[in-house]
Simulated assay, not measured.
Amino acid sequence: MPATPPALYDPVAPDFQDRHGEIYRTLRDEHPVYREPRTGFYVLSRHEDVWAASADWATYSSVTEEAGYHKPMMVDLDPPAHTLIRRVISAAFTPRRVALLEAAILAKVRELIGNFADRGECDLMGEFAALLPSDVVGELLGVPEERRAELRGHTEELMRMTIPRDGKAVAEDVYEVFEGLLRQRREQPADDLMSRLIAAEVDGRTLSRDELLGFCFLLLVGGNDTTTNLIGNGMRLLDQHHDARAQLIGEPGLIPAAIEEMLRLEPPTLTSGRQTTRDVELHGTVIPAGSRVQLLWGSANRDEREYPDPERFDLRRGARHMAFGHGPHFCLGAPLARLEARIAFHELLAHIPDFAVVGDPGRIRSSWARGFDRLPITFTPRH
């Protein structure tokens, strides 16, 4: 294997977000097991390796540094503890309950578009993509409207993390908010997910106070950043691929397939961490037990070994991807993100089909997320 270059992969480098495709390709081809000099973390970039590691929780544990300061939540647990808590949460957070949100999501999407449709310009991130999931998750959980902007600010801080411990103070602030809200729901249950989670029980197992706080934090952060960045990244792709946009305008039934391709090519979460429980030898490199390993979803989703012409945005590709993870930690909120995105793209393309991105879109700098600070667009005003 060629000698490891000193700083090939640095996700918080100023130019990383612009060059990540070529960096990922070099990692896959020349350094499939890479040790990041800034942090000492190991990095896996090939689809086959990431796919296998994400399913092998016994070797690549999800109990990482973050578990030391997070309340117990699924992303920081391994089976059987993960399996038990996921079953209880699934009893309250059901596909049927997600499907019931469709009318409310459609109303919110149309309200947000209506706020800027007559102007002929907007910042799509600040005026639409960041607001929609914040309101949807807030409504689902039962967060009062006056607290949603505060919580949205916390999730935006987390998107800009450069090392795992950066999230500790933010997590504490979020727990404090939900501690009060959950106390209110225990005294006065409502028709919301927080109340259902408090009451959820499977085989006599309920969620503890800390587990409730952990899941509320997880749904808030995952529900906000994933959908926000999916919408922003997707609209940028449609701005760059006019033929694909025309196809979707003419055949809206292709939108769900287009969303899957957006997720493959521009996943909102580029990487997730694991911790090795034993020495692992892979591609001639030994990863010692107790090492932090980053699984690069963003690279695996572009691997030429898995996808023909992987850099091409193909609405009809229909290939599996790992934007929502794989294995026991496959994202429980994926149906909600897909529902919000389907409605958002359908309405945006119906109301502002001729949009164009202008100026500097402004990518965020983050060790794990792919998204925009801003996405200024112009379009023909509605009259």
Rank of each mutant, 00 (worst) to 15 (best):
P2R: 12
P5M: 03
P6T: 10
L8H: 09
D15H: 09
H20F: 15
R28H: 05
E30A: 12
H31A: 06
R35D: 02
E36T: 00
P37V: 01
R38A: 12
V43P: 04
H47M: 02
D49M: 03
D49C: 04
V50I: 06
W51F: 13
A53V: 05
S54A: 15
S54N: 09
T59I: 01
Y60C: 09
T64C: 04
A67S: 11
D76V: 10
A81M: 12
H82W: 04
I85R: 15
R87P: 06
I89M: 05
I89K: 07
A91L: 01
A91C: 08
F93Q: 00
T94K: 08
R96A: 12
V98F: 03
A99N: 10
I105Y: 05
G114S: 06
D118Y: 11
D118E: 15
L124V: 07
M125H: 03
E127H: 07
L140D: 08
R148C: 04
E187M: 12
L193H: 05
S195V: 02
R196M: 14
E201H: 07
E201W: 08
V202F: 00
R205M: 12
D210R: 13
E211T: 00
E211V: 09
F215E: 08
L218K: 09
N224F: 09
T226S: 13
T228V: 04
L230H: 08
M235V: 08
R236N: 11
R236D: 12
Q240I: 01
H241L: 04
H242E: 14
D243E: 15
A244P: 00
R245P: 00
E261R: 10
M262F: 10
E266F: 06
E266Q: 09
P267R: 02
V286C: 03
G290M: 01
S291F: 07
R292M: 14
W297N: 11
A300K: 00
R312F: 03
R316E: 14
R317D: 04
R317V: 00
G318M: 01
M322K: 00
H326F: 12
P328S: 04
H329D: 05
A344G: 06
A344C: 05
L348N: 01
A350S: 13
H351A: 12
F355L: 06
V358S: 07
V358Q: 07
D360W: 07
R365S: 13
F372W: 10
F372I: 06
F372V: 00
D373Y: 11
P376N: 04
P376Q: 08
T378H: 05
H383P: 14
